[in-house]
């Protein structure tokens, strides 16, 4: 199997703060990988760098063998790497269909001639079928996450980056969304990289975990090993103690 994504020595500094420290890892085609780490570990920053929303201070990223470092975000998307946002960012004032339609207009989706049909199909794919004309303003959180996924899928990605899709959802919603993501991985031949800050949520989902703390990758391995990893346990217990101390 070839490496779809190759991250090499990526560091991102914000002034004195190093949000991501010398991160290196690879993703193989078809893999389902999770990024685990407490809040502030640098997970979102890493996503921003991978997708061109931020430039790394140092380091390189190769996607499909091509250097993506200085590409604008929309170009990264059109190379086949799509993302969702942790804080969902729908187009306010537009209905669900129009929200997905925007992404159906990307060059990568140029083969989809009937844009409306494609957008409508994608909404159905993520469990929002038959609600094309609904405005986004009244949409509950879980549905907004699905909408974000539909928009990302519209660009026909090879690699899908999901930034904390389960945050703020109830357990039954999480289970349904997890099923959807699992199905996309299986049926759509997607490589997925998923961020989560709670260990429990995605242990059953991913086949490999990249654990981060304070900007550094502290462990990589299958979930069964990661839960037993000392550094990971320390990162999490350390966090809880801090939380208790400050409470």
């Amino acid at each position: 199997m070839t490496d779809l994504l190759e991250v090499n020595g990526v560091t991102k500094r914000f002034g004195g703060l190093t949000a991501v420290k010398n991160a290196s890892f690879t993703l193989k085609k078809g893999e389902f990988t999770g990024i685990l780490g407490p809040n502030g570990a640098g997970k979102t920053t890493l996503f921003n760098i991978l997708t061109g929303f931020m430039q790394p201070t140092t380091g390189t990223i190769h996607f499909n063998g091509e250097l993506v470092r200085e590409l604008a975000p929309y170009k990264v998307v059109n190379r086949g790497m799509a993302r969702t946002f942790q804080l969902t960012r729908p187009f306010v004032g537009m209905n669900l269909l129009e929200n997905v339609l925007v992404a159906c207009m990307s060059p990568r989706a140029s083969e989809d001639k009937d844009k409306e049909a494609r957008a409508s199909y994608l909404l159905a794919q993520v469990g929002l079928g038959g609600r094309d004309k609904e405005p986004v303003e009244t949409l509950p959180y879980g549905d907004l996450r699905r909408l974000e996924i539909a928009r990302a899928l519209a660009t026909r990605p090879d690699l899908l980056l999901l930034d904390e899709p389960f945050a703020g959802l109830g357990s039954s919603e999480i289970e349904q969304l997890a099923q959807l993501i699992r199905r996309l991985h299986r049926e759509e031949n997607l490589t997925i990289l998923l961020i989560e800050h709670k260990l429990r949520e995605f242990m059953a989902l991913v086949s490999r975990v990249i654990a981060m703390n304070f900007g550094e990758i502290i462990a990589v391995g299958p979930p069964e090993e990661i839960v037993k990893n000392e550094k990971v346990i320390e990162a999490y217990i350390g966090k809880t103690e801090e939380a208790h101390a400050s409470a």
Binding site: A72, Y74, V77, A82, F85, R89, G93, M94, V102, A109
Partner: peptide, 24 residues
């Protein structure tokens, strides 16, 4: 048209447009 939809999307959120693969 679809074109106008994109222009309104740009008004809404340029970052989301980028994430949707649109050259704003």
């Amino acid at each position: 048209s679809h074109w106008g939809l994109l222009l309104r999307a740009i008004r809404g959120d340029e970052a989301t447009c980028q994430a949707a693969g649109i050259n704003v």
